[in-house]
Simulated assay, not measured.
Amino acid sequence: MSYEHPLAYLLGIEGAALLRAFTGEHDREFVEARLAEIRALLADQGLADGVEVTQLGPRDGYARWAAGYDSGENAAFADEPHLAKILDTIPPGRALDAACGTGRLTRLLVERGHHVVAVDGSPEMLSHAKADSTHVADLQELPVDDGSQDVVLCGLALSHVPDLTPVIAEFARVLAPGGHLVLSDVHPEQVQRGSIPSVRTVDGAPARVRTSHHRVGEYVRAFLAAGLAPVSCQEPTPPPAAPQHVPGGGPWDLWPWSLNGLVPDALAAAAKDVPSMLIWHCRKAA
């Protein structure tokens, strides 16, 4: 169980903005405006209550999310153009979509002529995927033979594993010599700022999918330990956008994004040039 308080998030954003001012990015007027805004936030009784939040494992969390996963807008799906560009450089072959979810990335592989095995830990998510074969399985025990895959693709999943090392080692095991590992995930900077999937439990209580904060160096060390050589690492940043103002910060289900409109200037300063995603391309030695 965790405790989410709107003031905790808002003061965190203000603090990040003030740290950037402290290192020379903003002037006295900006700092004084932030301090005045903090005082106003602390006095706002509409922001006085927090929410107890259950932490769900990925299998349970995504089972709850499966029916609506592909509906509406999901900023994390911005990984697709980056992944597609990498996949365009790889010839068709045998491909594994690991933690495929509803199969949104399976489609990228199929469109490029790959024979695809799709694997996910959630039967509810996997039921939506369309591949040559599908399997319910854990990322640490993939149901394919050693060296049998030319490509392993994994999108938006590794932030949900507590330790990258055994999962990356499993990816390396199933890759053929010279094979490609292509990954995307929410950038650790965004995880730290609250970019964590929200769902509701069976009885309607607030819940988050348990998420880890893996720094870039953790990925690199896991790749090298598994005999994978990084080819590229991209850290795309989202285009600047004014947050929508939601009176009172909105319901918990929209946190933290609905809170951003309460502190637009602080958010713009805190979020400037902060990457949204990590996109990796690695190869196994031939």
Score class of each variant (00 low, 15 high):
Tyr69Ile: 00
Arg283Lys: 12
Glu170Lys: 10
Ala16Lys: 03
Glu189Pro: 04
Ser184Tyr: 04
Val246Ala: 00
Val231Pro: 02
Asp70Cys: 05
Asp150Pro: 08
His114Gly: 01
Leu11Val: 13
Gly155Met: 02
Thr165Asn: 07
Ala8Val: 09
Gln45Cys: 08
Glu218Leu: 00
Pro264Thr: 05
Ala66Arg: 07
Glu29Arg: 11
Glu37Asn: 03
Ala222Pro: 00
Pro256Gly: 07
Ala169Glu: 13
Leu56Ile: 01
Tyr219Ser: 07
Arg34Tyr: 05
Ala95Asp: 08
Arg283Val: 13
Asp120Gly: 05
Ser148Met: 12
His114Cys: 05
Tyr219Asp: 01
Pro197His: 14
Leu47Asn: 06
Val209Lys: 06
Pro162His: 07
Met277Gln: 15
Thr201Asn: 04
Pro166Trp: 01
Gln149Glu: 12
Leu278Gln: 05
Gly12Gln: 01
Leu19Ala: 11
Asn260Thr: 08
Tyr62Met: 05
Ile279Phe: 03
Lys284Glu: 04
Arg64Leu: 09
Val274Ser: 06
His5Thr: 09
Val110Pro: 04
Pro264Cys: 10
His214Cys: 14
Tyr69Arg: 04
Cys282Tyr: 06
Ala66Gly: 07
Asp70Leu: 12
His115Leu: 15
Val186Gln: 11
Pro275Asn: 07
Val161Met: 11
Val167Leu: 08
Asp79Tyr: 11
Gln244Ala: 10
Val274Trp: 06
Ala76Cys: 02
Ala226Cys: 06
Ala78Thr: 14
Cys100Ser: 13
Leu262Glu: 04
Gly50Thr: 02
Thr211Leu: 02
Val220Gln: 05
Leu156Pro: 03
Arg221Ile: 09
Ala269Phe: 01
Asp145Gln: 15
Asp60Met: 07
Arg107Cys: 07
Val119Ile: 14
His5Ser: 11
Ala266Leu: 07
Thr102Met: 07
Gln149Trp: 00
Val51His: 02
Val191Glu: 03
His180Asp: 15
Trp257Val: 03
Met125Trp: 01
Ile13Pro: 06
Arg112Pro: 09
Ala129Pro: 08
Glu141Phe: 12
Tyr219Gly: 04
Gly72Tyr: 12
Asn74Leu: 06
Gly147Tyr: 09
Tyr3Gln: 05
Leu228Ile: 13
Thr211Lys: 09
Asp185Leu: 08
Cys154Ile: 00
Leu158Thr: 12
Ala131Ile: 09
Ser198Phe: 09
Val231Asp: 10
Gln244Phe: 07
Gln244Thr: 04
Gly50Glu: 02
Trp65Cys: 05
Ser184Leu: 11
Val144Trp: 01
Asp49Leu: 03
Glu29Ala: 15
Pro92Leu: 12
Arg193Ala: 10
Val151Ala: 10
Gln140Trp: 05
Tyr9Phe: 14
Val199Ser: 08
Ile86Leu: 15
Lys85Tyr: 08
Ser71Asp: 13
Gly204Gln: 05
His82Asn: 09
Gly24Asp: 11
Val119His: 12
Ser122Asn: 11
Ala76Thr: 14
Pro243His: 06
Val119Tyr: 02
Gly249Asn: 04
Pro236His: 04
Val136Phe: 05
Leu259Trp: 06
Ala118Gln: 14
Gly61Leu: 08
Ala205Arg: 10
Gly101Leu: 00
Asp253Gly: 00
Glu29Pro: 08
Pro188Phe: 15
Pro275Phe: 01
Thr134Gly: 03
Gly194Pro: 02
Leu105Asn: 14
Gly155Tyr: 08
Asp163Lys: 13
Ala269Lys: 01
Pro251Gly: 11
Pro238Ser: 11
Phe223Gly: 03
Asp145Pro: 02
